[in-house]
Simulated scan of single mutants.
Amino acid sequence: MSSSISLLITSLLIYVVGAFISLAMRKNEQLSINISGVTGVLGGLLGIVACIPVLISNDTVVDVFSTPFDFAQFSIRIDGLAAFMVCVISLMVIITALYSFSYVKEYIGKGAGTMGFFMNLFIASMVALVTSDNAFYFLVFFEMMSLASYFLVLTEQDDNATNAGLLYFFIAHAGSVLIMIAFFIFYCYAGSFEFEAFRHTELSVPLAFTVFILAFLGFGAKAGMIPLHSWLPKAHPAAPSHASAMMSGVMVKIGIFGIIKVGIDLLGSHNMWFGVIVLAFGAVSSVLGVLYALAEHDIKKLLAYHTA
């Protein structure tokens, strides 16, 4: 096992352990806040240390671990794209974790310990997702990310948070279904859930286009692409500020990562129409997002619209 993957796994374990300790210590909320913040900083630092060498060397590091499931091995791949995403996630984690030491005190008596649990799982699932090289585990981590962020949106437990959470839940899982169908099409022709098998599978042009459109819409929903953006200005303001920063700053970028992953890495396609579709939707989203933001005075909603 390479040092980069060892450090990455250690980082993931720190997040997971921090999540469960925060949950176990939830009755002592100040201690829970401190544990969640410290594990966030430590995990973030290790994530950066793990991936900086890959970015510098432009190498690809791969390792495969056996699992109880015969149809899906746990494959970790740190290439340039994954390393960049882990570094961005980790940097945001360090910043939000440091901010959380004072900010989350506002939630003492409102489930601050439980918040630490979901926050750490949210982070761990994003890091695991961008480095997963197997469709089955990719979808598992994608669902973990969506569910953890859903519970963070519900933190306030008022009507606005509940309505925002439900809208986010339905759109996120509708997107998951589209991604699942795209991967299943790949599986039918590759005979494996491994992304490495996907990369070596030649799909016909109509089938490749179908896979791309399914993945584009599925990941586009997570990215807040217009017209699939309606959850953004509702869910982000409802979440605690440090969680909202992670959602706006990192989670929606997972959607962009997914589009690049499928369109370029897995399909290996240089089809001009893929680029035209992404450019068209991106241009509309960026312009309308700014126009919507101009009418907003709530800083969280304004950030959410700029994220679209």
Results as ranks from 00 to 15, higher is better:
T39Y: 08
I264N: 10
T67Y: 01
C51F: 02
I299L: 06
L228A: 09
I259H: 07
Y292M: 07
A148D: 03
K253L: 07
A172P: 00
I9Y: 06
L266R: 12
H229P: 04
Q73K: 15
V54G: 10
F195C: 13
F281R: 01
M225Q: 10
I33L: 14
A112I: 05
S125K: 10
M92H: 08
N134I: 05
M85W: 12
F69Q: 08
H297I: 08
L121C: 13
C87M: 13
S248K: 03
M92I: 05
I9W: 05
A182T: 11
F184L: 15
M145T: 14
P233W: 00
I33A: 12
G282R: 04
Q157N: 15
H200P: 00
S244F: 05
M126R: 04
E143V: 13
C51M: 13
T39E: 06
H200K: 03
D133W: 10
S66P: 09
Y305W: 13
F274M: 14
I299F: 05
L291A: 12
L214T: 01
F142E: 06
I56C: 01
F151W: 13
I299G: 00
N271A: 11
R77Y: 13
M1F: 11
F257T: 05
A280R: 00
A215E: 07
H270L: 04
Y103W: 14
S248C: 06
S204N: 09
L294Q: 13
Q30K: 14
S2L: 02
V86L: 04
S2H: 11
L129I: 12
F219T: 14
Y292D: 03
V177P: 12
V287R: 12
L12S: 03
S32R: 00
V177D: 04
G111I: 01
G18C: 00
K300L: 05
G18I: 01
A135R: 09
A208Y: 04
S2Q: 08
M225S: 01
N163Q: 15
G220I: 03
G44N: 00
A164H: 05
S132A: 15
I78M: 08
T162G: 12
I95Y: 03
Q157L: 14
N58M: 10
S90H: 06
F20V: 14
N134S: 07
L267Q: 07
C51L: 10
G18F: 03
L42P: 13
I123T: 11
V62A: 02
D63V: 04
M85V: 07
V177E: 05
G249A: 08
A223Q: 04
A221V: 09
A239N: 05
G109P: 14
L217G: 10
F117V: 03
I89P: 07
V54E: 11
F186D: 00
W231M: 08
V140P: 10
L279G: 12
N120S: 14
